[in-house]
Amino acid sequence: MRRSGRTKFHIWLLLPAFTFYTVFWIVPAVVAFLSSFTQWNGVSLASIRWVGLANYVELFDDRWFWNALRNNLLFVAVVLCAIIVLGMTYALILNARPRGHSVFSTIFFIPIVLSSVVIGLLFTQMLSPTVGLVGPALSALGVPGVAEHQWLGSRDTALPMIMMVYVWQQLGFAILLLLAGLQTIPNDYIEAARVDGASAWNITRHITLPLMRPVLTVVIVLVTTNAFLLFDLVVVMTNGGPFHASEVLSVFMYSEAFLKGNPGYGTAIAMMLFVIVLCVSVIQLALSGRGQKAA
């Protein structure tokens, strides 16, 4: 009797979360998936036509899709490298407990609690050559030629600037996780190595990093997933411009679906994005799993 009562109980525990999640997240996602096989004007359901794979075929011929994909991949690659390298560096420094380390780690974490919209607005203001901070600073330093540079309005610097701001925003989180990982490494290992005369670099290279593998995997997967879905920061800072120079897939999707009135095409882009994120995450997890077994 109690056994069956118990088997039912977990259903009641799961039901509310399952219901809200399914109705308000998964069902819309499935509808979106289906609408990627249609073409319509977004205004009248009467205009909806089933077009099969036409939207996906069109994507392959669309130079702006490739442009957005290239920007997206470039963004993820640069941002990931920067966050891992910088994050590891700062985590190692903080782990050595220099004076004031807790004040520093508190400050480093501040950007993560601010909304992307606020951060975007703040940096847009600061980087503007007309009302900003950077332009006057450069001209005060005696490089007036660069002072009028449009950091967010120039093809060469728009995306790199967004990368920089993104790293600024996300670095604290990576530092925090990596630092926590470092603190779980037993001190005995390191002490033993030191007694054997290993250098600081060798300890880091041969003891710390291999033991950090699981944490690094988590950080890499989290950063990659988040960076692929980048949206707010681009919309606020450049709107994908100038002329597609900083357009990533989510922004491209938004502009097709909402600005040009092709919701079907827009969802096809979104589905490509979903598949890419899924594949990359699975590959990363598989690679780290194999590495762990080998080690």
Partner: peptide, 20 residues
């Protein structure tokens, strides 16, 4: 004005209204 590709319209309006 130098930020013509990166500023939004509000910023431009601000430059004009503040006499710059």
């Amino acid at each position: 004005t130098p930020g013509y590709l990166s500023d939004d319209n509000d910023t431009a309006a601000g430059l004009f209204f503040s006499g710059r």
